[in-house]
Design a binder for these strands. Structure first.
Lengths: 252, 252
DNA sequence: GACCTCGGTTGCGTATGTTGCAACGACTGT
DNA sequence: ACAGTCGTTGCAACATACGCAACCGAGGTC
């Protein structure tokens, strides 16, 4: 809708990847370098971009200022923090907190595991719904009409041999998840990692977010992974309580 | 330079403050609400903004995705982390890591203190050079010509009774800091808090950033604050080593 | 030291994209 | 049913952001 803004935002992503020369950036978004220069200058004025020397552009402080402000305003993040940090500390595994946004999963918090295998995740990063434990938990919590709608509308890229590839299979999986109260990602997203996830609920019992633990397969087999579920659920329950949820029925 | 981009970036700040209605945002940046709508839509496409229901706009996930990417790319942040985290753990006080950017100080990391008095700081937030310990450390590390230049060009808003208010006084203070190797903010920024700061150096001995500890005055008097300096300097020294610095002379 | 390349910068005229307007639609509360 | 918000769209006018081409400055090469 707004061309220059659109270009500028694309620019930001390009810069985030890695600092480049003007012409490179120009090529990337398909405009003249003078245009890039002018956009950069505006971004710079607002501290969204910094230049260091020549040939080096980095994201600026406004970026993380706003980001931190935004993160702080996500209530469930703060209320879930103690429980998830404790879970992370006691198990040593990577813990994620994620929520649904526009047909995808967004990670809103992350506690790095001790056995830090390089995982392709990061706060703010987005992931597909069909191959992540958190994705399954979040969609499974929706009314069945909405589940259908989503299951039919998303793509099913095959990321590992275990990835679910059809709406039918996904819907069946969601049903299982809804029943069980937790979800598993049996190496459906990344080959060497499997996860379990469970919902964090708010005052009205609605699902605010999903928390997951990710474990390298070399460290724990499938049995071992499932054995973590009780601990995970204890943590999500505690997080839910801190978010206003009460055991039986509505809060307030 | 780019009007629409400029407006959009201003919009982001407004949204960060607090989610509002279209007209409010329009007023704030002085344009018609339809204009705001179109900008928001573009921002939304890029996930810089989310809408929840009506009358609610929040910053979106692209924001913190990029921000985290950017933070990860700040080398000194990662290399200083262990030392600063340990300092924070052992003293219980709030620890900041900050660097110089465009006439101001920018906080690039923060470790919350245990006795958490609400402090007006946040990763990515900017603060003045003249009334912060980190600011003094960073400017004191510059060659004297540049010190002069900066001292003459910045403003000296009076924030507390102790705030330095003239370039002359500031330059004298910088000289003291350069000699001593650390800086003090004796409640010059916020009335109830005082800080000490010391530099973190890189391979060539250049100052990469400044680390500080902030302590409420009710917790520790001026004497007590100064007593923390050795521990702080031990931590910044360790951080420097991790950043490539070597005790005597040039690295490489 | 002259020449070349590469990255960044500026002025200018034009076409394009962006804007404000005003009318409409959806929703809320009275 | 009506008034009051808030968000959305089509359109025409204009400002603005664009591409171009020339220029500058730094580094490297011969």
């Amino acid at each position: 809708m707004s061309q220059s803004l659109d270009r500028a935002l694309t620019l930001l992503s390009s810069i985030a990847k890695d600092a480049r020369t003007l012409d490179d950036l120009a090529d990337e978004i398909g405009v003249h370098k003078s245009t890039v220069l002018r956009l950069l200058r505006t971004l710079e004025q607002h501290h969204f971009v910094r230049r260091e020397g020549v040939r080096h552009y980095r994201l600026g402080s406004a970026m993380f200022d706003l980001a931190n402000q935004a993160l702080d305003s996500i209530d469930v993040r703060r209320s879930a923090q103690p429980a998830l940090a404790a879970l992370n500390a006691s198990t040593g595994h990577t813990v994620h907190l994620a929520s649904y946004d526009d047909g995808e999963v967004v990670y809103i918090d992350k506690y790095e595991g001790r056995h830090s295998v390089r995982m392709y995740s990061r706060i703010g990063k987005r992931a597909p719904l069909h191959c992540t434990a958190v994705g399954k938990v979040l969609v499974a919590a929706m009314p069945s009409a909405r589940r259908e709608e989503i299951a039919r509308s998303i793509e099913y890229p095959v990321l590992t041999p275990n990835t679910i590839t059809t709406p039918e299979a996904y819907l069946a999986e969601l049903e299982r998840v809804a029943q069980a109260g937790y979800a598993v990602d049996n190496a459906e997203h990344e080959d060497f990692i499997h996860c379990v996830a469970a919902p964090v609920r708010g005052a009205d019992g609605e699902v605010l977010a999903a928390a997951s633990m990710s474990v390298p397969k070399v460290l724990l087999d499938y049995e071992g992974l499932l054995a973590l579920v009780p601990e995970l659920r204890a943590a999500t329950k505690e997080a839910s309580v801190h978010s206003g949820w009460t055991e039986n029925g509505k809060g307030h």
